[in-house]
Amino acid sequence: MTVGVKRVGAATFRLDGVYVAASGTAVGDKEWQGPLGQYFDLHWTPPPDSKSFEQEERDLLRRSQDVALAKAGLDWEAVDVVLGGDLLDQLVTTSFAGREHGRPLLGLFAACATFTAGLATGSLLVAGAGAQTVVVSAVSHHFAAERQFRYPVELGNQRYPTASWTATAAGSTILDHKPHPLRVEAVTIGRVVDWGQKDPNDYGSAMAPAAVDTILRHLQATGQTPAAFDAIFTGDLGEFGRRLALRLLNEQTGEDWSQRLDDCGRILYDRKRQDVHNGASGAGCSAAVFGGYLSARLDAGAWHRLLLVATGALLSPTSSQQGESIPGIAHAVAVVAEGG
């Protein structure tokens, strides 16, 4: 197969010969019991000997990578590059997993947009023939994130209606140049968009403008209309962020996108029954939703072309306390079902 990459706009690239070989997903209890539970590979439970949430997160990541490799029929020696990230300081989960698999590793951070940052980078690496087999991973663990970003786990507090629930989930996707049913068609690297939202209990409103910016840039560069996509999935704007994104898209294009645009964080849980307010978030959310549900829809022929636009809120607890607004970013990856 010939691989190739063509720049069609500012940081938008059309790719040839980049395929999704397999995806592996592992999710926690709450995610497994959610409406998408049946689509995930592994119902992960913490290993009995784990001493910390951080250790558990590493186990979760490794399990998703192992499943992906098993599904693709590969072992670690066949992997040329590993790309990925998590939400913990200094990317310890991704890096510590690297000391076990021992493959060349590029840690990435784009908060909850990490998965598409990895998919885009990995696709460019394959298209440029720089690598043949790339593993892209993203992981988050609810309690590990809580204790880093918010409060101790057992401390009682009331969550805001706009707050989202960090998912305990990991998704790993393997990209290579051999033909498979799913092909990466084009990618757009997002830019940082900050419209001054400051509420750390509401990432959706901070990230929605970034998602809209990337979606419109991607369409403009590729010359596609929204109708070219059967589904456009942002991740993790949640219920509120999606409504804001729809409003912005409507304002800027004059079209109603509500039948086309949905959000990974909005569908991972049953928001009423599972008491998660705005929906799910976390680097692992869009990775698991893509590897589980979205890939399955493409594989089944329900959709032909998908635009996955994971969104990240690029704040730290310190920046928030210092009164800074929340910068958002979104990276887009278009995936087509070949012959679907």
Binding site: P161, W195, L216
Partner: peptide
């Protein structure tokens, strides 16, 4: 079409939507 180069009027409208559409605490 570009959100980044959006004029200040759009941002102001957006800030208004955020406040108006934000789900309320019970």
């Amino acid at each position: 079409m570009q959100a980044q180069g959006a004029d200040e009027a759009l941002r102001a409208r957006y800030r208004y939507w955020v406040e108006a559409m934000r789900p309320k605490k019970p």
